[in-house]
Computed example of a mutant assay.
Amino acid sequence: MFDVAVIEDPAAAEVSLDPVRARLLAELAEPGSATMLAARVGLARQKVNYHLKTLEQHGLVELVEERRKGNVTERMLQATAASYVISPTALAPVQPDPARAPDRLSARWLLALAARLVRDVGALITGADRAGKRVATFAIDGEVRFASAADRAAFAEELTAAVTGLVSRYHDERATGGRAHRLVVALHPSVGGTTAESGTADGADRAAGPVAGA
């Protein structure tokens, strides 16, 4: 079972969004049968079995064991991942396009970048799984507390300069056998704190972050 799986198929996305099926997926972090799950979620076994078959048809759960009990074979199923992310590919006609209105200070542009990140990394994971390989990625996740909006703006400018310098140093357009990599650096108010902490006092709908592609 994977830690995270990306759902790219629209039908699978629709199936996963059903509240009952989402609950069953959560319960199936550990293997279980229709009978076991029926007792946990308070539904008839036949109803649970129907939902499980639908989830299995769309690759969201898989058979891990069959147990013979008298004249009955009990099927033990498990979710294919501990959690799922729905790729913008599932909504292809209306998926965000960061190229449509690039704006470093727009929170909505940042969201479009994040959506593209989910789409592209999801596609890479799918391809790598089929080939039995791993995807070469790197990420940094941290938090910084600014004393003022001015400090935040200064930080963004220095970060932009630093990243631009690194890209200029390592980018080689003529490298034989080289492979292009997408680089995304983002800065946004933390979510879950007080109004002052989350940055709503000076515009929670704004985010500053340098973005570069190589």
Rank of each mutant, 00 (worst) to 15 (best):
D3R: 04
D3L: 04
D3E: 09
V4P: 00
A5P: 00
A5G: 01
A5T: 02
E8L: 07
D9Q: 13
S16H: 05
S16P: 02
L17N: 09
L17S: 13
V20G: 00
R21D: 06
R21I: 07
A22C: 05
R23W: 04
A26E: 14
L28S: 02
A29M: 01
E30D: 12
P31T: 07
G32H: 04
S33E: 05
T35F: 06
T35E: 13
A39K: 13
A39Q: 13
R40N: 02
G42K: 04
G42Q: 04
L43D: 00
R45F: 00
K47Q: 11
Y50L: 13
H51V: 03
K53Q: 13
H58M: 05
E65K: 12
R68H: 07
K69L: 11
K69P: 00
G70C: 04
N71G: 12
V72W: 06
V72H: 12
T73I: 15
E74W: 01
R75K: 15
R75I: 06
L77P: 03
L77G: 03
Q78V: 15
A82R: 13
A82N: 08
S83H: 02
Y84S: 06
V85Q: 08
I86T: 14
I86W: 04
S87L: 06
T89W: 07
A90P: 03
A90W: 02
P93R: 04
V94C: 01
P96D: 06
D97N: 15
A99D: 11
R100P: 00
A101N: 11
A101C: 01
L105R: 11
S106F: 01
S106R: 02
W109E: 03
W109N: 08
L110H: 15
A112M: 02
A114N: 11
A114R: 14
A115G: 10
R116H: 09
V118W: 03
R119A: 15
V121Y: 10
V121R: 03
G122E: 03
A123H: 10
L124S: 12
I125T: 09
I125L: 13
G127T: 04
G127M: 03
D129V: 05
K133N: 05
R134P: 00
V135T: 06
V135K: 03
A136I: 05
T137E: 10
A139K: 08
I140M: 05
G142C: 12
E143A: 14
E143T: 15
E143S: 09
V144I: 15
R145I: 13
R145A: 15
F146I: 08
F146R: 08
A147I: 08
A147E: 14
A150Y: 03
R152S: 03
A156S: 09
E157Q: 15
E157V: 14
A161R: 14
A162E: 09
T164R: 11
T164L: 05
G165L: 02
G165V: 05
G165M: 03
R169V: 05
D172N: 15
E173N: 06
E173S: 13
A175Q: 14
R179K: 13
H181F: 10
H181N: 02
R182E: 11
A186R: 01
P189S: 07
S190G: 13
S190R: 14
V191Q: 08
G193S: 12
G193H: 08
G193T: 10
E197L: 10
G199M: 05
G199Q: 04
D202T: 15
D202C: 04
G203W: 07
A204M: 07
A204P: 01
D205Y: 12
A208E: 13
V211M: 01
V211T: 09
A214I: 09
